[in-house]
Write a protein that binds this DNA or RNA. Structure first.
Length: 294
DNA sequence: ATCGTGACCTGGCTGC
DNA sequence: TGCAGCCAGGTCACGA
């Protein structure tokens, strides 16, 4: 669930409370969330201050500066939330026991805390020095909301792949941050069948996909993300974009555009949702008709 | 190289 | 009510 808009919402919610705080200690309750031994992870974060909170793809990125007694670099704590990960802020006055499935507990110098909770434990956390972060980031595709991400880049990249366009959108090496919900929603708005080969899309369809993908992601960020079950913001509240979904999870319901019935198909081992009337398989839309799908 | 499939882990829902 | 079976937003490794 946590895709780009959810990671962005969490990062924004953590920025003000975390900025300038120092990490007093890290308690690791679920070591399998880490790729290094917990002692090493703990040592890499203790007594370091938070310089920034951002996002790359679906990952929340916390920049930690050098601790008081050490010189050196700004490292980054990269949090991949997997399917059910939550990053929750605890205010100083909240004593409360840790919630179930808490994996990590970061104690901050103002008495507040940051909790990583993950029921399914598909999430991963790592502290990366600058060069390792650069390598990791280079392995991800472009940010779809970046100013430099233009329609021609998307069209060019799509034209080189025979993969079904929905699978293409899910591949983080090709484009960062898109998951199953927003891939399905963008394709529905662009009226493109998710199973069509990426390279078979017309340039017009590529331009449309570029536009609607960005608008879907922006609207979802404005709504605080999509809560279907697990996702919560840093304050523990739900995102409201589920109300705006047109196809995802709406199997059997009417299409908001043509009143046809939304169906679910299996594609690459996972569910895809579409309106068969608005998103016909195998053929392209008439490019002379300059309709503006929304 | 590219693409598709299954595994990872746990909880919630459905249907018998 | 109990329980087996199925499903889930993500990523990774493997084999065709």
């Amino acid at each position: 669930m946590p895709e780009l808009p959810e990671a962005e919402t969490i990062a924004r919610g953590l920025r003000a409370p975390l900025l300038g705080r120092s990490i007093e200690d890290v308690e690791v309750l679920k070591e399998d969330l880490l790729s290094v031994p917990k002692a090493e992870f703990r040592a890499s974060l203790r007594h370091r201050s938070v310089h920034g909170v951002g996002r790359r793809g679906k990952n929340v990125v916390v920049e930690v500066g050098p601790g008081s007694a050490r010189g050196g670099d700004v490292d980054r704590l990269v949090v991949n939330l997997g399917m059910s990960g939550r990053l929750l802020r605890r205010r100083p006055a909240e004593p409360a026991p840790l919630p179930g499935h808490t994996g990590l507990h970061f104690r901050l110098d103002d008495g507040s805390a940051l909790i990583y909770r993950d029921v399914r434990r598909f999430g991963r956390l790592a502290v990366l020095p600058p060069d390792a972060y650069r390598d990791w980031s280079r392995g991800l595709g472009p940010e779809p909301l970046a100013d430099g991400f233009r329609a021609r880049h998307l069209i060019g990249a799509l034209s080189r792949s025979r993969s079904p366009v929905r699978s293409w959108l899910l591949d983080q090496r090709r484009i960062a941050g898109v998951g199953n919900i927003y891939a399905n929603e963008a394709l529905a708005r662009a009226r493109i069948h998710p199973g069509r080969a990426a390279r078979d899309l017309s340039p017009d369809e590529g331009r449309t996909l570029h536009r609607v993908l960005r608008s879907v992601l922006r609207e979802a960020i404005d709504a605080g993300g999509t809560t279907l079950r697990d996702y919560r913001t840093a304050e523990g509240s739900e995102g409201s974009y589920a109300d705006a979904l047109r196809v995802y999870g709406r199997e059997g319901h009417p299409c908001t555009r043509c009143a046809g019935t939304i169906v679910r198909i299996r594609l690459g081992g996972r569910s895809a949702f579409l309106c068969p009337r608005c998103q016909p398989a195998g053929q392209q839309h008439d490019s002379r008709r300059r309709t503006r799908p929304t």
